[in-house]
Design a protein around this nucleic acid. Structure first.
Length: 502
RNA sequence: GGGCUCGUAGCUCAGCCAGGCAGAGCAACGGGCUUUUAACCCGUUGGCCGCGGGUUCAAAUCCCGUCGAGCCCGCCA
């Protein structure tokens, strides 16, 4: 570790600043009256060499520092953008003290807007103040931070160095805002339902378990908000939605993170085709608002969100892309075919779904609704013919949404839960892929839930598409990683600094 | 869970195949420079080669194990 040696210079400078009565860490505010984007917008028309008398007070992080003897150039980055600072020996206050200011420090400056002889719009700095001293060096100014692991573990450094990363999250904020507005304008209300649940449900997944010491009870982090949102329908809410953080104790890959956010919404008195119409309109509106077009490029492919979107039955999708006609196959034949493909499942429905994944899933680039799911893997949905009245939305080969006509018959719901319990007893998979009985939910249905349709949208995957990112981790600010051991911090490396701040 | 790849200075990377003093650029430090923008020039500092074991006179390099990360497959609607 050479970090201590490098850090020594930084803490020596902090010490000197303190001795000069300039300890950055005691400062509580800096009144900015401009940011980089504002100055660039207002003054980009200046002639090279022109100096205005327009005064600005700006603050941000110093990303680079170029010394030329009597003049120092630096780049200041704030949340709006980047602008050059010019410090001049014959103009700037305390010019010599600038040797204590490093790349990475956060500073506030007051100066005038100029354009240099080389034509770079800049702030000629009169006075300056260090607002926070960086005690660790920034990554290479040219290559920046590229190491994927460090980018995720120390995302703060990633955001400093990689504007692209920061932009993704600004875009996500816009998308969230658009979704909220769209739903609110359509009469939905936003709600929050329990994340800590005594019984998990609403999906097939292994939950995280925890323990409530006061209640002395085992609890689960929710795998989905579904069953609570439908309790609200029972209670008389007709259109509800939730941006729901969910937790699933399963493997991590480019499409799965143990914690992720689902948008779920429920709408009473409409049926599945109405929901699909609504989703089309909503997505089309969001994409159009965002990029001014229904088409976007994702990983080299063009995705067109223009409605109407294709709708087809799952069994037809399998056929269309070279798979068998499962409707004409008996159980024995179907299971045999699955075995040949290496698919080992206990339910007919699971096999059909796997066949869909195998043959068809990747083929849907433009948004496509796949409908008519096997009943036995849809214990919360109503029936439609021999199938579940259910759809999944596929975009760029990814499952982005899953919705269905909500089963509101308490008797049938009870039976489906029972079937799940039976299956769990038989299963050799420790019951992880079955839903537990939720009697309170059945009781709620016994009071009467209106016919309704609901959907869960995997927002992360939608964000991936909009940001043209290949992995979910890129659109999660702090993705789940294994614990990092052996982190050393500066007060441990240089205990004497602890005496500075009593 | 299976396969493949990677881990060397704060950052970006060489060195490994074919064992022989631990390297470069950037950053940092000292000096020069009043219009640069990857500034430049001269000099200096900086290493648990992820970790543990083995082979060897000698290991960053070869072998085994292990930890972390990435990609693919399986699994997770």
């Amino acid at each position: 570790m050479t970090l201590p040696k490098l850090v020594k210079d930084y803490i020596d400078k902090l010490k000197e600043l303190r001795e000069l009565g300039k300890d950055p860490f005691i400062i509580k505010k800096f009144e900015k009256d401009a940011d980089a984007a504002y100055v660039i917008k207002k003054f980009s028309g200046l002639e090279a060499g022109e100096e205005t008398d327009y005064k600005v007070k700006m603050a941000g992080r110093l990303l680079s520092k170029r010394k030329h003897g009597g003049v120092i150039f630096a780049d200041l980055k704030d949340s709006s953008g980047k602008i050059q600072l010019v410090f001049r020996k014959d103009y700037t206050d305390e010019f010599k003290v600038l040797r204590l200011v490093d790349r990475g420090d956060i500073i506030g400056v007051e100066g005038i807007v100029i354009k240099t002889k080389r034509g770079e719009l800049s702030i000629l700095v009169k006075s300056w103040v260090v607002l926070s001293k960086a005690l660790r060096p920034l990554p290479d100014k040219w290559h920046g931070l590229e190491d994927i692991e460090t980018r995720y573990r120390q995302r703060y450094v990633d955001f400093i160095m990689n504007e692209e990363s920061r932009k993704s999250f600004i875009l996500i904020n816009k998308v969230l805002h658009l979704i909220r507005s769209y739903l609110n304008e359509n009469g939905f209300i936003e709600v929050y339902t329990p994340i800590l649940q005594p019984v998990y449900g609403g999906a097939f997944a292994r939950p995280f378990e925890t323990y409530h010491h006061f209640l002395e009870e085992k609890m689960y982090l929710r795998i989905a908000p579904e069953l609570y949102l439908k309790r609200l329908l029972v209670g008389g809410f007709e259109k509800v939605y939730e941006f729901a953080p969910c937790f699933r104790n399963e493997d991590v890959d480019s499409l799965h993170n143990p914690e992720f956010i689902q948008l779920e919404f429920y709408w009473a008195y409409i049926e599945l085709k109405d929901l699909m119409d609504f989703l089309e309109k909503m997505f089309e509106s969001i994409v159009t608002n965002l990029v001014g077009d229904t088409k976007i490029e994702y990983q080299g492919k063009i995705i067109d969100f223009k409605r109407p979107w294709r709708r087809l039955r799952m069994v037809d999708a399998i056929k269309e892309f070279g798979g068998p006609d499962v409707e004409k196959m008996g159980d024995e034949e179907l299971f045999k075919h699955a075995e040949e493909l290496g698919i080992h499942e206990e339910r007919r429905g699971e096999i059909i779904e796997k066949l869909f994944d195998c043959y068809a899933k990747d083929r849907f680039v433009n948004p496509t609704f796949v409908t008519h799911f096997p009943l036995d893997i849809s214990p919360l949905a109503k029936k439609a013919g021999g199938y579940a009245d259910r759809m999944e939305l596929y975009i760029a080969g990814m499952e982005v949404a899953n919705g269905f006509s909500e089963l509101n018959n308490p008797i049938e719901q009870y039976k489906r839960f029972k079937e799940e319990e039976e299956l769990r007893k038989k299963s050799d998979k420790k019951g992880l892929e079955t839903m537990p009985m939720d009697k309170d939910y059945v009781r709620a249905l016994e009071y009467g839930m209106p016919p309704a349709t609901g959907v869960g949208v995997g927002l992360g995957r939608f964000f991936m598409i909009l940001n043209d990112k290949a992995t979910l981790r890129e659109v999660i600010a702090f993705p789940t990683l294994a614990r990092e051991e052996g982190i050393e911090v500066i007060p441990e490396l240089y205990p004497e600094v602890m005496d500075w701040y009593d």
